[in-house]
Design a binder for these strands. Structure first.
Length: 581
RNA sequence: GGCCCCGUAGCUCAGGGGAUAGAGCGACCGCCUCCUAAGCGGUAGGUCACAGGUUCGAAUCCUGUCGGGGCCGCCA
């Protein structure tokens, strides 16, 4: 059940009725008609802008339309009152039975409450993390991992067929550096002193890789020229790094459906095919780029190279795909990879990148637009920096020194649930402070705790009800006498519960999982408020001594809130707490 | 020089073209004989950086300016 969608349908039907009666022109566009809670609750339960939206197209006075529409809406049994206000809003007051129905629906639908068919089975690919396979995941990757996974779950919850994908950058110079670094550890495993030259990866995590190389190859790779061992050591080390990355992701319960290798794509000839496809579209040409504006690189000289006409799709300059020596640029495999995704038949693509990749957004969108003929939308979500704090001090990472803060460090200290929730309490394009002291704090200052505490209180109510001999399974609660829920404080919580399906769809449309986290905080706040009203007004307590029917209705409301918290945390990948310790 | 993100209460931040711009923290005042006070209620606090534009209506969209952060390569 999606109450807001239902009432919007009622509004649209009302408009159609007006058109049939000649009060409105036919076939006015209704896309912009919204039904939402008014900012000021004093205005009612819901408000629609329908009259104002249609007045623009129909050349009519908003209030004239509003009055005709309000009259029709008021005829519906769900609508207690429909009044025209302000510049042409229609404020709706809904019957208490509507809110009671929301509670019943939440209990009846359970884990499916809030699910939607928004995606209509659309196949969508979410590419995220895609960290270079040269070391463990660090804290910078953590946010992208959590964001991508939560977004994938959100899309799945809204009726999309989701593929979680990781692109392995295993073809560039950095994996050769990895191979050389691992080779030194291999020498070390043979008792030789490693020479970790400037530019190699110094981290200890390569020591076991060196041992493993020794176990596999014995001494056979020692004292051989690089060309004899580079490819084998590289493949071995990359595989080891990927195992480490998978294990790191598993700490956060992130699991990919598909790992795609850049090297495999390059070796399969897909780069040539993808470039040929662009060439067929007339988007590849030989040319010379203008020198960059501002300070000129010292070694700049104009050269003829193979270029992609990305400016035809809004990019700032055309982009080289082939260097002047004939080899591919880094961009070429990216083109091939996105061509590959389009060829695999996805209806939509999402890439989750670190903010340092902002410069690639336009060219990649250009590639996908060109290769899909504009059919496949590509949304690129840039995830901003995470700043770590501990004991009030910034916690710096330094990749050069090999002492960066890893994903494992963070998860082992804060736990997966806290890490995931906190990483989602900011929109992706705003920087995030992650303060170990604050996120571990057991108080309402900490949103993770606050939401978990609400859920634990609900579980506590249910446990006590069971002790009191009340049946509290969801089916029984859904059949409870919910008309006993009539107090304003109780209906307020039901109203919030009614918003859940709407929030889910909205978050999914915008690819914004943080909205789920903020909503859950508000829901928890409403629940805590109601709980405390029971301190002053005993009739608002969930357990009513000697009145099982009232108790059941009130417990049903609490349980419905619990269902929503549980569903919401499920999307975020956070385990709901049964009790607080 | 160009591009991207950010600028909303003292602080940290929400805010989908709609009505009197919200929450938490901090400050101040209250609330436990009572299902978990690990909580709740209230008060104070705002030229939504600035200037134009579009609109019946702009914190929101567009242009520009200023400030903070990030990026720029025949690197990956």
């Amino acid at each position: 059940m999606n109450l807001f969608a239902d009432i919007r349908t009622l509004v649209i039907d009302g408009l159609a009725d007006m058109a049939a009666a000649g009060e409105l022109p036919d076939a006015l566009p209704t896309d912009a008609v919204s039904v939402e809670p008014p900012r000021d609750p004093g205005h009612g339960d819901m408000a629609t802008n329908a009259a104002m939206v249609l007045a623009r197209h129909g050349g009519l006075q908003p209030r004239t339309i509003a009055e005709g529409l309000a009259r029709r809406l008021a005829a519906d049994p769900r609508i207690l009152k429909a009044e025209v206000a302000g510049p042409g809003f229609i404020n709706l007051r809904l019957a208490p039975s509507v809110w009671q129905g929301v509670v019943r629906a939440a209990l009846a639908e359970g884990a499916d409450y809030g699910r939607s068919r928004l995606g209509r089975g659309q196949r969508i690919n979410v590419e995220f993390v895609s960290a270079n396979p040269t070391g463990p995941m660090h804290v910078g990757h953590t946010r992208g991992a959590v964001f991508g996974d939560a977004l994938a779950e959100l899309l799945s919850f809204t009726g999309h067929e989701v593929t979680r994908e990781y692109y392995i950058n295993d073809a560039g110079a950095q994996v050769d550096v990895l191979a050389r670094s691992a080779y030194e550890r291999y020498r070390e495993a043979h008792g030789l002193s490693p020479e970790i030259a400037e530019g190699l990866y110094p981290g200890d995590y390569l020591i076991p890789v060196g041992e493993a190389l020794k176990a596999k190859y014995g001494a056979s790779l020692l004292d051989r020229p690089e060309e004899d061992w580079l490819a084998e050591v590289r493949d071995f080390a990359v595989a080891a790094m990927l195992e480490m990355i998978r294990a790191d992701l598993a700490l956060l319960d992130v699991r990919m459906d598909v790992f795609t290798s850049e090297r495999a794509i390059a070796q399969s000839g897909q780069v040539d095919k993808a470039i040929a496809a662009l060439r067929d579209l007339g988007l590849i040409y030989e040319g010379t780029l203008e020198p960059p504006k501002g300070e000129l690189p010292e070694d700049w000289e104009p050269r003829v190279q193979t270029l992609f006409r990305s400016t035809a799709f809004g990019d700032d300059v055309d982009r080289p795909v082939r260097k002047s020596d004939g080899s591919w640029t880094y961009f070429a495999p990216d083109i091939a990879y996105h061509w590959n995704k389009v060829e695999r038949g996805f209806d939509a693509l999402v890439n989750v990148f670190g903010a340092d990749h902002a410069g690639y957004v336009k060219r990649l969108k250009a590639v996908v637009a060109a290769l899909s003929g504009g059919r496949v939308p590509l949304d690129i979500k840039l995830v901003q920096l995470v700043k770590l704090f501990k004991d009030g001090q910034p916690f710096k990472m330094s990749k050069r020194a090999g002492t960066f803060v890893t994903l494992r460090d963070v998860v082992e200290q804060a736990g997966p649930d806290v890490t995931r929730f906190v990483m989602l309490t900011r929109k992706n394009d705003a920087a995030l402070d992650f303060d170990f002291d604050k996120v571990m704090d057991q108080s309402k200052d900490n949103p993770v705790f606050y939401v978990q505490y609400a859920h634990a209180r609900i579980r506590s109510v249910l446990r006590r009800a069971v002790e009191a001999g009340l049946p509290v399974d969801d089916a029984t609660l859904a059949g409870a006498a919910l008309d006993r829920l009539s107090h304003e404080a109780e209906l307020a919580l039901a109203r919030r519960i009614a918003e859940w399906p709407r929030i889910v769809e909205f978050a999914a449309r915008g690819h914004e999982p943080h909205r789920i986290a903020f909503y859950l905080y508000e829901l928890a706040s409403d629940f805590h408020a109601l709980w405390n009203r029971g301190n002053e007004d005993t009739s608002l307590r969930f357990l009513q001594e000697g009145d099982p029917a009232a108790s059941q209705a009130k417990i049903a409301l609490a349980r419905a809130a619990g269902v929503v918290i549980s569903n919401g945390l499920g999307i975020l990948g956070v385990t709901p707490a049964e009790e607080m310790r």
